[in-house]
Amino acid sequence: MAVPVSQMYQVVKYVLTQKVKGVKRYPLVLMIEPLFRCNLACAGCGKIQYPEHVLDKRLTPEQCWAAAEECGAPIVSIPGGEPLIHPEMPEIVRGLVERKKYVYLCTNAILLERKLDEYRPSRYLTFSIHMDGLREEHDMAVCRDGVYDAAVKAIRAALKRGFRVTTNTTLFDDAHPERVRAFFDEMMALGVEGMMISPGYSYQKAPDQKNFLKRNRTRELFARVLSDRKRGWRFNQSPLFLEFLMGKRDYECTPWGNPTYNVFGWQKPCYLLQEGYAKTFQELMADTEWNRYGTGRNEKCADCMVHCGYEASAVEDTFGSWSGFGRTVKATLLPNA
């Protein structure tokens, strides 16, 4: 079991509470992007291309805490940019932990070892390390030699000090399944708590047929990566989401499941598309035309199978019915069935 029982309990309690209250759309993971500046310039990353004066802007701790309180999601993920660049990040994390939010601090780990003293191990804090494969693939993906080795060193140091550590991996069409499986072996051998995987998001104005094939290719890739799964592999995410990636089940996107807050405000409609910003979370939920988004409804969503849209769909499936719960139990206990 990759996710601790206490965290699972809080998430289950939260989801069931929303159901009892009759809330149709509820957030599961709040994504806070406290800054866009990064110390890497990964090829094709669409998150950090802004003028210098925008890259210099940062959310304050108070803004981050207020967003977490207003949103109410039990889990807060902090991507970026590189969050460890933010001088007030330890304070931001402390405040979120005090609010009993399960924080996933996403980092490329270049600065992690140097900054570890500024954080305290907690069941509420997880360092989620960006690792896109073995050394060759990862250093190619981040466009800099030596980053894989630095990240592995930092992971070891964080684990030694008692921090929760997971990895997050984005796979694209060019991934080699056998190399990815070898990468899983490596990460588990390091001793990480669990791994998170997702396909990348690629926006291309292409004919529908091409998009359809692309989605199929994603399913084929993940089926090859995740079939005949080794017992030692632990994934820090919904087992039904993994089955979705493998093409074993289909979901509609749940863009409100992972709302995004950054220096521009609350991003409409999701972490990946930038169609505008709301001043408050309430405004985001009330004013976004959610029916305009998702595969089959919007060309920008045609290829998307990304975790920020579909992991919440999988969780909703789990708690939406007894059969969904049964599917989850089966997928957890018998991943290769």
Binding site: C42, A43, G44, C45, G46, K47, P79, G80, C106, H130, D132, A141, N168, T169, T170, F172, M196, S198, G200, Y201, S202, Y203, Q204, L272, V306, H307, C308
Partner: peptide, 9 residues
């Protein structure tokens, strides 16, 4: 998982 490959022209 912050990556998104932007395939804009």
């Amino acid at each position: 998982m912050t990556d998104s490959k932007n395939h804009s022209p």
